[in-house]
Amino acid sequence: MERNRNNEKLDKTILRTSANYLLPLLILFSIFLLIRGHYLPGGGFIGGLIASIAFVLHSFAYSPMQTLRMFSIKPFFLIPTGLLVSFLSGLLPVVLGRSFMTGVWFAESVVVIGAFGSALLFDLGVYMVVVGVVLTILFTISENT
C-alpha cells in the first residue's frame, strides 16, 4: 500500500510540476487566442476550449476536487454569466438606438486585437460559456463515476 502511494506520487511529480507552470501559460494563451480572434485564427470557441484543456490537465495531475478548489465560484455559474455577457453585448447597440447585435466600435485598431467593440464582448461571453460547459460536464462526470 505504502509503496503504491509513493509510486503514484512519484509518477505524478513531473506531471504536477509541469501542470503548475502550464496552467497559467495555457490560460494566458487562451485569452490571447480570444482577443486576437477577430484578426487571426482564434476566437471564443477555441480560446474557451484551450482554457478548459488547461484545467483538465491540472485535474489529471492533482484531482478534480483540487482543481475545483481553485475556483471561487463553481464553473457552472460561468454558463449564465457568459450567456448574459453575450446577450448584453447584443443589447448594447439597442441602447444606442441601433438594431439588435449591430457592431459597435469603441476604438480604432488597437495592436493585435484590432478594433475593440461589441463583437469582442460577445466572443468573451462565448468563451465563458464554453469553459463553463466543458468544465461542468467533465467535473460532474469525474465526480460521479
Binding site: F45, L49, V134, I137, I141, T145
Partner: peptide, 20 residues
C-alpha cells in the same frame, strides 16, 4: 463546421452520460 464540432462534443457528453 466549427459550430458543428463544438455541438458534437456537447452531444457526445450528453449521450455518454445517458448511456451510463
Amino acid at each position: 463546421i466549427l459550430t458543428a464540432i463544438v455541438i458534437s462534443f456537447a452531444l457526445t457528453a450528453f449521450a455518454i452520460v445517458l448511456l451510463k
